[in-house]
Computed example of a mutant assay.
Amino acid sequence: MFMHNKRLQYTVRVAEPNPRLATLMMEQFGGADGELAAAMRYFTQGLAEDDPGRKDMLLDIATEELSHLEIIGSIIAMLTKGVKAQLAEGQMKEAELYQLVGSTGTSAKESILFGGGPALCDSAGVPWTAAYVDSRGEPTVDLRSNIAAEARAKIVYERLINITDDPGIKDALGFLMTREVAHQKSFEKALYAIENNFPSGKLPGVEKYANMYVNTSQGEGDTTGPWNSGDQWERVDDLQQVMPADGGDGTASVTLPAKDKKVATKMAERTMSDPTADPTTGADLGAGPGAGRTKGGDMGGAPDIHSAPAMAEATVGK
């Protein structure tokens, strides 16, 4: 059960309306790395969590994320207060209102449908979706995803701070940004409180493949480091050594029942290509300048405009 405290977790002081800035702030309201996505991610994880410590932590942080949604939404509401009033009361002339909607940087959806107030959209007006919640129900997976989500949100807040000179907004965003850091620390501690947390899940990796580093991008720029060299790795530079990795012939096969095998054979025979055929195709018949080499130039294919005869003809024409 939730109870709402009418005081914000952090005071919002906006110096002046700025609808364009409000549009950018929407990214942390209804965007992929925004506060609503974080709250829903941790809340649903917490409901399904069996460990009492992780459950308590997830529900604590989920609830705090809702308070952060309230803060960023309040910032947006203050930044768009003038636009919202003008659209609602219609005191400006039609042309002025039309210009107002376009010049603020808000989308028509935000201005007309939502009246300039905060909506569950990102900065491009794309509606929020539950697809942003990427939980898998395995704590070692979800905690790593949560750590990454907090890190991404921290970077978005950094960028929002950098594009405003409003001291009150900077102050509030700095608080929100720093809470992302604190949450990341909590998730890190929870992850490493799980013994044998890598690799994720119950099943162990196959030992001979777990130590293999395959250098598949070769050429200038090749670099070595602890991520691909040293005692932990068996580095493979000759790709023929691991193609295929299991030592088989590298083909795909399946054992079909007799009735399916018979039908599959018939289908293969019906759709078999003839490597000796060279039919005239639509590309040959409709070929124009720049089509490259086509079959039977006298059958409709136009000459290449960069060919010597074509260029000579063009020169004479001038």
Rank of each mutant, 00 (worst) to 15 (best):
M1N: 09
F2Y: 05
H4A: 07
H4D: 05
Q9E: 11
T11G: 02
V12K: 03
R13Q: 11
R13T: 13
V14R: 00
R20H: 12
T23E: 12
E27I: 04
A32C: 06
A37I: 06
R41F: 11
Y42A: 11
F43E: 14
Q45E: 11
D50R: 11
R54L: 15
M57Q: 07
I61T: 11
I61A: 04
I61C: 03
A62Q: 10
A62N: 10
S67A: 12
S74D: 15
A77L: 10
M78W: 13
L79W: 10
K81I: 15
L87H: 09
A88G: 04
A88K: 05
Q91N: 13
Q91H: 09
M92I: 01
M92R: 09
M92K: 06
E94Y: 10
A95C: 04
E96S: 04
L97I: 09
Y98L: 10
L100I: 02
G102Q: 14
G102F: 09
S103R: 04
T104Y: 00
T106E: 08
E110V: 05
F114E: 02
G115D: 09
G116D: 05
A119I: 08
L120R: 01
L120S: 03
C121K: 01
D122L: 04
W128S: 01
T129M: 02
R136C: 05
G137L: 00
G137F: 00
R144C: 08
S145Q: 00
S145H: 00
S145K: 00
A149G: 13
E150W: 00
A153T: 11
K154E: 13
I155T: 12
Y157M: 12
N162S: 13
N162P: 01
I169W: 07
K170D: 10
D171E: 09
L173D: 03
G174T: 07
F175Y: 14
F175L: 04
L176S: 06
L176A: 09
M177K: 14
M177P: 01
E180C: 06
K185L: 03
S186K: 13
F187E: 03
F187C: 02
E188A: 01
Y192C: 01
F198I: 04
G201C: 00
L203Q: 02
V206N: 04
E207G: 02
K208R: 05
Y213V: 08
T216G: 09
T216N: 07
G221M: 11
G221P: 05
G221S: 12
D222E: 14
T223V: 11
T223F: 07
G225R: 00
G225A: 02
P226K: 07
N228Q: 02
Q232N: 14
W233E: 09
D237F: 08
D238H: 03
Q241L: 15
M243T: 15
M243R: 02
G248E: 10
S253A: 15
P257F: 01
K259W: 12
K261H: 03
A264V: 10
K266E: 15
E269T: 14
M272E: 14
D274K: 11
T276F: 06
A277I: 07
T280V: 13
L285V: 03
A287F: 07
G290M: 09
G290Y: 09
G292E: 07
G292Y: 06
K295T: 05
D298I: 07
M299K: 13
G300K: 03
G301Q: 11
I305L: 14
I305Q: 14
A308R: 14
P309Q: 13
P309W: 08
A312I: 15
E313I: 07
E313F: 05
A314Q: 14
A314N: 11
T315N: 14
K318E: 12
